[in-house]
């Protein structure tokens, strides 16, 4: 099941990497082939920078949407300017769409391409996110994948999988956790995890971060 249905007037949609990204890949391949670096060790180190790449204002966007109904409406109908209003500076041509989680529907985003991941909003993608097995399993057995992440949803909640494209990037707007009434936007933003914004996790609860 795919959540998007766009026309691609320029024919097939292939993958894209910038000139700089190509150079970095070339370097990594050569250094790996010659035994100077191990990709797994690099990935492990890079993953520790999950929260150190890009402006990462996704959590603020979510917290604002939880507290401000007007902003929430704006975000869900026209995400780019709504996100930009909290200081996001994405690449041109990236169209963001925000998917709202409700008791009836849980959204989960897949894409094996790092280049389709909205890192300016979310920080670095987790390493497993780029793996082919994650993508195919998420499509075939989303409940199983969620269970692996310790997330159990009510049976009646529909799980919808969205596949990022090179034109559309998704951000999941998770449900506001119970017991957070009266918390400031800043405190609320602390509850919003990267995984909750790609739909493989839920936001933290206030008692988790005390």
């Amino acid at each position: 099941m795919s959540g998007h249905d766009h026309d691609h007037p320029h024919g097939h949609e292939h993958s894209e990497l910038s000139e700089t990204e190509l150079r970095v890949r070339a370097l990594e391949t050569i250094l790996t082939e010659k035994g100077y670096v191990e990709p797994a060790a690099l990935d492990l180190l890079i993953e520790t920078y999950e929260k150190k790449v890009g402006p990462r204002n996704g959590a603020l966007v979510v917290a604002k949407a939880w507290t401000d109904a007007g902003y929430r409406k704006w975000l869900l109908t026209d995400a780019n300017p709504a996100i930009a209003s909290v200081g996001y500076a994405g690449r041109q041509g990236e169209h963001m769409v925000v998917l709202e989680n409700t008791p009836k529907r849980h959204n989960m985003v897949v894409c094996t391409l790092c280049s389709c991941y909205p890192w300016p909003v979310l920080g670095l993608p987790p390493v497993w996110y780029k793996s082919a097995p994650y993508r195919s399993r998420a499509v075939a057995d989303p409940r199983g994948v969620l269970a692996d992440f310790g997330v159990e949803l009510p049976k009646e909640t529909e799980i919808r999988i969205w596949d990022s494209t090179s034109e559309v990037r998704y951000l999941v707007l998770p449900m506001r956790p119970a017991g957070t009434e009266g918390l400031s936007e800043e405190r609320l933003a602390d509850l919003v995890t990267r995984d909750s914004m790609i739909g493989t996790g839920l936001p933290k609860r206030p008692e988790d971060i005390k």
Binding site: S18, L27, L31, V37, K52, V53, G54, W119
Partner: peptide, 20 residues
């Protein structure tokens, strides 16, 4: 805490340099 990066490739370039 340590280095910060603007884009993912920067972290990759940094990590490779560290390994070398």
């Amino acid at each position: 805490d340590g280095p910060v990066f603007r884009e993912p490739w920067e972290a990759q370039a940094f990590a490779m340099t560290l390994a070398l």
